[in-house]
Amino acid sequence: MLRIENLHVSIEEEGTRILRGVNLEVNAGEVHAIMGPNGSGKSTLAAVLAGKAGYDITDGTVEYFGKDLLEMNPDERARDGLFLAFQYPVELPGVSMSNFLRQAVNRVREYRGQDELSAVDFLKLMKERAALINLDPSLIKRSVNEGFSGGEKKRNEIFQLAMLEPRLAILDETDSGLDIDAMRTVSDGVNKLRSEERAFIIITHYQRLLEYVIPDFVHVLVDGVIVRSGDKSLALELEAQGYDWLKKELAESAS
């Protein structure tokens, strides 16, 4: 469903090069983990895939279900089933969760040629999905993320994922800042949402999350390039030896 080829990205205006030739292929049903040290370009990759402004794509292509993803508006990508769980979800003061999600769900449904959900059906769906990922039901009565704790915000992202039923879900450091219980709840939610039709890209700094959500592939991003790919054992190796081990090895092979 997703094919990234030789993707080069710089920060607009500054010109700082962040991604320097990323290649990645993701198919339906697969879970890919992207790991890497701070500043390696993981979050930039997520932002560029979702269409955030402020980046220059200097080279490369991204194909999404045969379409040129980079040509699509952020909202069009979202309606076409690309979902990003934000690392830092923003607050929308005064915007109720139900109003926000109802618009979102209906825009997505419209794009898929489905009828809008009635108020009753929508409410039912909200309750059902909140229960699925153990979201405190009182949160869906509040304004979007306003006054939510860090853990509640992250859980709310997974709740929205469950509501919108994307084809490709990108989780940007969803595990950061979570205690072990919250991490378990979030991973349970993700595991319940895994399916044959849906792919995940899980961006994480630590291996911890991958103990709960077992990835099919693990990629290591260093300085804007995927330097190694493997299965879940690669994550364990990294955990044991740290990123320095990989960097050192790379430096040696280069010289």
Binding site: P74, D75, V95, A104, R107, Q160
Partner: peptide, 19 residues
């Protein structure tokens, strides 16, 4: 954030201002 959930830019601004 709103666009990433499928809302157009116009709808996003309306929603934020209304909120």
């Amino acid at each position: 954030y709103c666009q990433q959930r499928g809302l157009s830019e116009q709808d996003a601004i309306k929603l934020i201002v209304n909120g």
